[in-house]
Design a protein around this nucleic acid. Structure first.
Lengths: 184, 184
DNA sequence: AAGAACGTACAGAAAAAACTGAACGAAAAG
DNA sequence: CTTTTCGTTCAGTTTTTTCTGTACGTTCTT
């Protein structure tokens, strides 16, 4: 943090302000599926004036290095922090991705995309399966046929929705979203 | 589920197909901050051909009525299910909101909006606080002044991002988003 | 008014997730 | 080549979340 050069009063003032912000940001990071303490870690890195090592994080967070390692990896997987290379140091260094617009769209590209595609796949397969059942014997008892058709209809609707979501994610990834909602 | 009219083989076929879909949907509902079993409950309601009571859900899910009650309330709070009134029955009836586009935008309107506004508030206050510190004494030691200004800059950027996110949520709530990404 | 049916609050049990320290393997330093 | 440093794996512990049964208040039914 390199706050060492400040007087104790200055350090206290500053960390009071920062702590409130870190707390708020960290608390709301569960929207990204991130635990509170990993959210705090993110907040710490947000205010750091230089990339940090795992040991430094552990020091500041008063937590084990193991926890820092897993926390950082979570953030790394979501592209919320970046690994930084610095000649001379053989420790790994990390800093937050300060482009939060990018972080937001990456979140969708990584997490939501996966869910969307998995669900589309499963739904399409299920529809196929039902089609097979319906085709197999045209002499189906009415209640069964009706239920199958209703299920197929519902799943068809769901697929349409997921395809829409897929396109929405495209629009975010491509940056087109900024045409509709400009950054400024 | 009113599958009673079907033969055991038909019931088996159908529930095999449904179970796979429910599993997939439920698994990915953690994106909404919803537990796996509440996700399964949602899946169950998705396939139900009529609104269900808590007892029916407990029966199907093989879980306690208490759990059904809390699960349904979670889904209700997120507007993923609706309470349905049916004359004659004095039990509460629930059905899923089948308009998934609406569900998606409601999710942002409910969860993200809250986070965004809370964070903007906290950040604005913190910026104010820093402005006060900077104004208080113009004879600040350089390192402190520099750090304060850097923190202020970062938080200003964050506020701008959150304001963008706020506008994005507006666009979703208003339906403008469908101009950019049409439903079909 | 009394009894039955319903949903939920609550406290304890069970399950899941987060956290830690010790141990290990890889890679740099001596 | 040996030693040190670093990040991660893993097993065990702590903390948090989920789940359950009982008890309770409310609202219908009779």
């Amino acid at each position: 943090m390199s706050l060492d050069q400040l007087t104790p009063e200055q350090q206290a003032e500053l960390s009071k302000v920062r702590k409130r912000v870190i707390e708020a940001i960290g608390r709301n990071m569960d929207l990204y599926g991130i635990s509170l303490s990993t959210g705090h870690l993110y907040g710490l890195l947000f205010f750091a004036d230089k990339p940090m090592t795992l040991d430094e994080m552990g020091m500041e967070m008063k937590m084990s290095k193991t926890s820092m390692s897993t926390g950082v990896r979570t953030l790394l997987d979501m592209k919320m922090v970046n690994k930084v290379w610095e000649k001379g140091s053989r420790k790994d260094l990390y800093e937050v991705e300060y482009d939060w617009y990018q972080t937001f769209t990456d979140f969708f590209a990584i997490k939501w995309r996966k869910a969307v595609e998995s669900n589309i796949l499963v739904l399409r397969r299920a529809v196929e399966e039902i089609n097979k059942l319906l085709a197999l014997d045209s002499e189906l008892h009415e209640p069964f046929r009706g239920i199958l058709e209703e299920d197929r209809r519902k799943m068809g609707e769901a697929v349409k929705y997921y395809e829409w979501l897929d396109r929405l994610i495209d629009v975010m990834e491509s940056g087109e979203i900024y045409n509709l909602v400009p950054k400024e």
